[in-house]
Write a protein that binds this DNA or RNA. Structure first.
Lengths: 200, 200
DNA sequence: TTGCAAAACTAATGGGATTAGTTTATAGTA
DNA sequence: TACTATAAACTAATCCCATTAGTTTTGCAA
């Protein structure tokens, strides 16, 4: 009973993401997305319900891509090396797909389980890589928050043009990450040191 | 020769900032700003040239407020204590004035010297507070970038609802800041250690 | 072939930013 | 006190964009 394959939700989302990447943070209109797909704006509504759903789908698409890249970056690595690799992969993703990256920042609502799950997937990669540091559950959460803050903060300022001075950004980021991972054992100091030592 | 005092550019900017703060990251229309000021939307054009200028003025207003707060937080403090106080003041500002804070992130263009200056003012506070760490000029820039990334990244994720788990955010932020300031001496390792030691 | 349902189209609606042109109110002056 | 110049406000109109309504087209399946 199906007819006219034509477009698909996925094609619309991908086109929107590409336009966003190319538009340097500016908004992208439905008309522009439609034009790129060789179609009129109202036709998009056959595949998406509206801007809100489009943004949700973009976030989902971006988070899955990000999660995949972070997981891939940590393959065959452990400890500090894995964390540094993940940090670099995070920044590379944001630089390669700036519009899609910004779309991933949309926090998932209660009625968006797929989005929540995709976000969890990203967090899970971090959790695994943090395991060797033998942090408690709460300490791990603090550490994940720190890692996310560093990575997001740096790339957000970088993409926004917030770093005006012409000094090597790669090194700034690397130093920041290294400072964090070197301080990571400090995240465990909440426990009595004796126990931590005894377990090691 | 002046007539009808009425509104002022400043009043428009302040009204816009208050509405932004209350609107949880949503956009605010000129109609809403006008309504709060008891006026019709086109009347705003007697005081601002349009949205673009409004956003520039918001950024300027916010950056000056932020710079003032950071400077104030560091009065009578030095070293780690000053950095921690500045970090807390940064986050407090973002939480108290979320809409205005987001407006400050607009990077200044070449034709916006006032905005550049206000941004420099913020950076200058950080530069002064980093002085005791005896970093080179370049190392200081890396350190400032790190500090800004941490502060912005954390509050950005916090404001965006990106931290879903109900675990004390204050502690997460404090730990992150402490980890950074503890690692700050490491920013000087580019120089031969002997010289750094001899100077101390 | 032919029918039907999906998908595309045109036309229309509504909201927001902005502009044009008009009216009103006040500060300074006669 | 009355006048006038001018800033500031208003209404009406325009343009762009998202979205909806209603119509036409197209391709698979019977």
């Amino acid at each position: 009973m199906r007819a006219r394959p034509g477009l698909s939700r996925d094609a619309v989302v991908r086109a929107a993401a590409e336009l966003l990447d190319a538009s340097a943070g500016r908004e992208v209109t439905l008309g522009e997305i439609a034009a790129r797909l060789g179609v009129r704006a109202p036709s998009l509504y056959n595949h998406i319900e509206g801007q809100e759903e489009l943004h949700r789908e973009l976030a989902l698409f971006g988070l899955r891509e990000l999660g995949g890249r972070l997981g891939h970056a940590a393959i065959g690595k452990a400890g500090d090396a894995a964390l540094l690799a993940i940090g670099e992969a995070y920044r590379t993703f944001a630089r390669e797909r700036p519009g899609l990256y910004l779309a991933t920042l949309r926090a998932p609502g209660p009625g968006e389980p797929a989005l929540q799950e995709a976000g969890e997937e990203v967090i899970e990669v971090l959790r695994i890589v943090l395991e060797p540091y033998t942090l408690s559950d709460e300490e791990t959460i603090h550490a994940i928050r720190g890692l996310r803050s560093i990575a997001h903060g740096f790339v957000s300022l970088e993409l926004g043009g917030g770093f005006g001075i012409p000094l090597d950004l790669d090194e700034s980021f690397r130093r920041l990450l290294e400072t964090f991972v070197q301080g990571l054992p400090g995240y465990a100091t909440a426990r009595p040191a004796a126990i931590a030592t005894a377990a090691g």
